[in-house]
Structures are given as C-alpha cells and as structure tokens.
Amino acid sequence: MAILKPILYILVYPGLIFLMVYSTFCEWFDRKLYARMQNRIGPLHTGRSGILQPVADIIKLFAKEDIVPEKADKHMFSALPVFALAIICTTALYLPLWHYSEAPSFISFPGDLIVVAYLLTLPTLIYFLAGWHSNNYFSAIGGVRVLTMLFGYEIPLLLALLSPAVLADSWRILEIARFFQDKPLLMLVNLIGFFIAVIALQAKLERVPFDIPHAETEIVGGQLTEYSGKKLAFFRLLGDIEMVVGAGLIAAVFMGGFPGGLLPGLAWFILKTLFIIFLLAAMRAATSRIRIDQMINFSWRWLAPLAVLQLFIVIIIKGMVS
C-alpha cells in the first residue's frame, strides 16, 4: 500500500495521465476563450464544442513525418523534447494536490518552492538548446531571444514568489498554502506580486505579448523552426503542461492552494487554474507582441521594482502582524 500511493501519484494523479488530460483541456479552454474574445468561434468539431481538438492536434502531429535536419546535432535534437517533457512532469509532482501529510516526503519538503522555481526554468534552457542545435539561423535567433527574455522575467518572478514565502515564513509550498488558508485576508497583501507573477508566467509560456522567441512573422517558428512530427508534439504538450504547472504554482502560492483532500482539492485546483488561464487569455487577446528590447525594458523598469516594492510591503505587514 505504501508503495502504491507514490506510483499512483506519479503515474495517475496528479502525475502523467492527469496532466496530459487536464493540460489538453486547458489548451481547449484557452483557445476557446481567446477565440470568443476575438469574435471567433474557436474549435468546434472534434468532440463536444471541439473539446478534443488539442488531443486531435497532438495525434495528428504524432502521425506526421519526423524530420531531423542533416546539419543538426542529431542526438541533442532528438533528446531535448523528451527531457523537457520529463522535467515539467516532475515539476507538477510538487504541487500540493493530494498530499496532506505534514511529514516531509520526496514530493513535499521545506524548500520545495526553490526546487519548483528551478525546475520551471529548465524548459526555457531546453528551448534555447533546441534552437541552438537545430543549426538554422531562425532557430538560433529564437534561441538567443529565449535566453535574453529569461533574464527579463525570471528575477521578477522569483521576487514575486519570494514575498508570500516571507509572509508565511516558510519555503514549503504546502505550508504557504496552509498559511493563506488560515488567514485568507492576507492574500490581498500580495496582489501586486500576484499580477507580476501572472505577467512573468505569460512571458515564460512565450505567449502574446511575449511570444518574441517564436514570433512567426519575424523568424518563422523561432527555436522550433526545424521541429516536426513527434518532437513538435512533445514541445506542444510541454507548453500546455507548463501552463497548468505555472498556473498551479501561482494558485498554490498566492491563492491559498487546494484544501480539502482528494475531490474538493481537485475542484479547487481546476477552479483556480482556470481563473489564472482566463487572465492569461485576456492578456493575450488585449495586447500586441512587443520587441525584445521593449520587453527587457519593461521587466527591469516596471516588473522588477514593483516586485521589490511588494517585498517591502510584505516585510512591513509581517512586522505589524507578528
């Protein structure tokens, strides 16, 4: 029994199978919302209201011809998508979804916030390597843009995640969530940080206005120009799961997590992540892509100082509360 639960945890819920299903659902939700905001209908034909469209897209990509460019680094080129998917699925395990024991285990221990932040950075690095090893100018430009952007949003994101941790006096996601569950009013203190984190998540997911690395009208597909077939399907799945994990992390850290055990926890998880995805879709519909220099300027002129301000507010409030 003791061994069964971790296996279930890794493979079924909230591990691999749940992530695959839920992330495709989230993509459909995002696409549908985005389409409705643009006066379009969005996916319609596959399944009820097109709900199976993302699954159909991935199945289609798996059936397509898989091309590895002659001049590309073949081993790296093929291994990177699998690594990226594995990393992001591992990250998902640290979301406090089903484990409510206080004892530290391999999925929840003091300091797991840092681990999640670190693991969430790795797909970005993999995007860069994918671009670099494709041996294509468009990919190389895309890869360099990925790294340039990383320096823009990563520090505001970390600073934003820092403030709830400081307030809750813990580096463990579970404890931060529990702290806010006990004192829901204190969530309002982190409002600035919440929005900074959502914007940084948008940049991490490379969606409009931050889809600079794979801006198709400029550099075709950016870092993914040379990818096709199964490997591209892996990268697409990676994007979807990254969105779920990012939204889950923000929900856990800023919005009080997912209390109540298996089923209520699941309901909270879906509710809160969909809310964040709604914010992301709205941001995507309302803005235009910006240039890389404008993006870096924006991060360092607005996001980073605001994140520091948030930290100060949190420290002052903490002094007042305790």
Binding site: N39, R40, V208, P209, D211, T217, S288
Partner: peptide, 16 residues
Amino acid sequence: AGQEAGFESFFMYTWR
C-alpha cells in the same frame, strides 16, 4: 499590420 505586429485580435476585428 495587426497580424505582423502580433496583435491577432486587431486582425480578427478588422477582417470581420
């Protein structure tokens, strides 16, 4: 122009 600038909503609205 909206599409080239990455502003898809603008593209959809004007084309409608």
